[in-house]
Design a protein around this nucleic acid. Sequence first.
DNA 1: TAGTGTGAATGGATTCACAGCC
DNA 2: GGCTGTGAATCCATTCACACTA
Lengths: 212, 212
Amino acid sequence: MKTAGIPAPAVRRLSLYLRELESIWRTDQRTVSSKQLGDALKLTPTQIRKDLAYFGQFGQAGIGYDVEELITRIRRILGTDRTWNVLLVGAGNLGMALSAYRGFAKKGFKLVAVFDDDPSKIGKTLSGAPGLHIQPVSAIPAMVKEKDIRLAIIAVPAESAQGVASILVSAGVRGLLNFAPVNLDVAGNVAVSAVDLAVQLEQLSFQVGAGV
Amino acid sequence: MKTAGIPAPAVRRLSLYLRELESIWRTDQRTVSSKQLGDALKLTPTQIRKDLAYFGQFGQAGIGYDVEELITRIRRILGTDRTWNVLLVGAGNLGMALSAYRGFAKKGFKLVAVFDDDPSKIGKTLSGAPGLHIQPVSAIPAMVKEKDIRLAIIAVPAESAQGVASILVSAGVRGLLNFAPVNLDVAGNVAVSAVDLAVQLEQLSFQVGAGV
DNA sequence: TAGTGTGAATGGATTCACAGCC
DNA sequence: GGCTGTGAATCCATTCACACTA
């Protein structure tokens, strides 16, 4: 798939379009204009049309976009028209919450293994993922091969995150979703997406403070 | 504080600089150059200098930046040189994990109240926040006033999120950290920061899939 | 010499304006 | 009339190049 020339911000927005389209679909609306989508997401209609145009022609002049078709097309673009096997490292509070999150499977991601190095946890299951027994981190490479896993979620303490990331990458994982508050150093062909609660709150602090 | 003219991406990076500086500080290094910071964060030295220059002159030509001083200055810029009272709505799995997250307080954010409308939860406490009794959502406005709360975390299901957001905003909260997978519609003077697990995974899916 | 701060130049993303289609 | 798709124009962020300082 050609990916060069497509602005990263456009790809980020694609996910938001998809979420909004799925919500519109539930209201039994079958057609939508870039204006309506723009109003809902606080974006300009032009930007939405331009973003979609990077990937093809999806709309009908005078009518708008067919909601169902656009959902299908965006899923295909994002690669979520199939199911991805995902593994989770870290069976603490956050890992437990993530494993219990249902909206996960609905989007085409399937949690297939959970790892943690705390001896008291190994062999147990998380209540959110009843079938999955917690395995030691050393079992990661075999599982990655067996289940063809390309995406992993890191929910371990900051000190362990880089080590876990290195293990995952050398096992062949291609994308990491990192919840630990550290910058991961990985090869350039590995995608990393980071969620840091403190960073998010700091941004709010700045915005709220700046307005006063 | 003047905030116009400062690129939003620069403010986002400020949080990353701070995190890295705190990590450098722990290694007992007392001075850092934009080059070193850039290498660690995979950014150009010029960009770091430019970002910092939006807010003042912090460095010593020929030497670099004093780590401690830069940490202090960035905290002041972000507004985290003081403690913010934060409230949490939603005492499910995610709410529990968030309330147990310690790295929260270290950054100047203090969780002072937890709300949920599930009758079976009201009055109980979350294990991560032993002192805090879960209160009904109707108690939010009084608590916001009493504790001067400006920031709130929304960790409720998608269906309830907009309602909760509206209550928070009319109670006077100025910034929302939203974990529910919906786009919140709030007044323009309210800051919203969103974390959607599915969106993050979709981005990884695109990046990993596109490279194949 | 090592490294900051910054005007100027470049490169990208957003918005404008409009041709074309239903 | 309503709405898409898109070249052109604008706007904004990043990078370059270098004057300057410890």
